[in-house]
Amino acid sequence: MGIIEVKEITKVYEKITAVDHLNFEIEEGEVFGLLGPNGAGKTTLLHMLATLIKPTYGTATVNGYDIIREPGKVRRSIGIVFQEPSSDDILTGYENLMLHAMMYGVPRAEWKSRIREVLRLVELESRAHDRVRNYSGGMRRRLELARGLLHKPNVLFLDEPTLGLDPQSREHVWEYIRELVEVENVTVVITSHYMEEADHLCDRVAIIDYGKIKVMDKPSALKSEIGEKIILMGVKEVPNTTDSLPFLTGYTKENDRIELCVDDASMRLKRILETFPTFEKVEIVHPTLNDVFLKYTGRSIREGGTAEGGYMQRIMRQVKKR
């Protein structure tokens, strides 16, 4: 039995079906990724699992509790880090964590020790008593990761955990996520439109587009399905037939440039080079999740996310608003 079981879950907004009859399970201890472009329905799905919105149809269980009938129990057993920064920037990091401990029913005797624990995990101890207003975007994310874990949830939902962070902070946050998965032994459900992020972090990913799951598997399995490519450039002599290379899954020739699709490039390279004795350059291309995405949705995922706005931009807007 999975720690999360999704049954026919559907959300319809007026005319748009944001999430369309999904069925899947997430195993305990897994880092599970929901991948898709902006507006694919990832956040809607996450919010339904976190009981923030009700499904139009279908349901799901989280930690064995039904999200419709037992939302209180679901909430107590999950942590969530929202796409938008949702800490109070007038308060200090420590105070934000304290409020969370109080609201989530963490026993009073554990407040201080537990806060210290999670602060150490995200390495924010030295800044704990600074106001959140003075944190960088990456620090604020880490604080919210710590907050999501404070009440020892069994499942942690992370909605675009690195949206809008610069590449360096992003990798930093990845490290923290990986570490807390180990230390806290928590199941993580992550949404992302960064394919690289999913590749780094997730044991299993579901590619979701227009509210439907296109494919679901381990990132390595998805990529090996695509296969690898060997590209030869400056080829002078081309054999009449590629019959001697029965393992080829694709073959294209463009002037003196030849692309050969294979399952495992390092294994097949020798035979290929024997067949094409004259060439100037050889290149091996490993597939990315982006290629997987392309294959299953017919389009490339848009990086950057300008439509939703960067994380830092949102913080800046908030600072001005106050």
């Binding site: 976190a50 009981t51 923030l52 909430r75 969530i80 929202f82 938008e84 920064p85 949702s86 800490s87 109070d88 920037d89 969370h100 609201m103 907050r147 908030q318 608003k321 106050r322």
Partner: peptide, 9 residues
């Protein structure tokens, strides 16, 4: 400022 989400969840 989205703090409401933290409270409502």
């Amino acid at each position: 400022i989205d703090f409401l989400k933290e409270v409502l969840v």
